[in-house]
Amino acid sequence: MPDRRLGSQLAPHVHGWLLLLPAVALLAAFTYFPAVAALWSSLHSTPKGARPARFVGLDQYAAMVDDPVFWQSLWNNVLFALGTVPLSVAIALLMALWVNGRIRGRTALRMAYFTPTMLPMIAVANIWLFFYTPGYGLIDQVLGLFGLPDTNWLGSPATALPALMVVTVWKEAGFFMIFYLAALQAMPPSLREAAMLEGAGRWCIFRRVTLPLLMPTTLFVLVNAVINAFRTVDLVVVMTRGGPDNATALLLYHIYEVGFRYWDTGYAAALTTVLVVILVVLAIGQFVYLDRKVHYR
């Protein structure tokens, strides 16, 4: 009977799609639809009161070219990524190597390194806000003991962004350490023993054996770190609100201001589209380009 055969052929497909349905529905409703909707509204003017949105083509993108804050926040974001990603990845690796060794109190140490990751960002930002407060903050109190003058870390354009970078590195390094630690634990000890039999020193083993084996983890961590750098906003909201003079305005914060302070939703949608494109390009670039090089053969 042809009908039944068709039915039995279809059944696994239907079954499979039904299993996928919850995830697909959620992704479509909360990821794909908003992304497409953002692209769509970025081609329209912002509706204001009685004036509805109308199609303006690429006008919003043209306005972006003239928007000095956009360029500055983009540049700030590049600096922020360059300042935080390599440093937090390097520190994460060092900490992982350190707590992977056989030392006393290593569980406590692992916990300590991981603690900043568990704290909510808003709490972290408030703690550091206190550290940085000129005059009363922890840093100035300590420096004051040595007779050094007060420094307005968050109030001067030269130090505000680096001050935020320090907080980010402090918070992120412990998180990335966990991935490195997992990779180190999964590494078969036989490789290390073989290298030692060959007479390789510790540094040589690290450089020739451990590091290459950690490369897939590094790629994963790197992709996450870069995405995080372009997604940072809570820190800016709590600590500086983008000031002074936009010195700490990151791209996502600029989008927030345009969208929810100025209510220029069309322009905010255009900025969002640009941010998504940047993230997609970075992720694809890292995976396609670096993926060829990271696997140890």
Binding site: F30, F33, P34, A37, A38, S41, L252, I255, G259, F260, T265, A268, A269, T272, L275
Partner: peptide
């Protein structure tokens, strides 16, 4: 991001 928040 804006639209997503708007929807929420």
């Amino acid at each position: 991001m804006t639209v997503r928040r708007g929807l929420r």
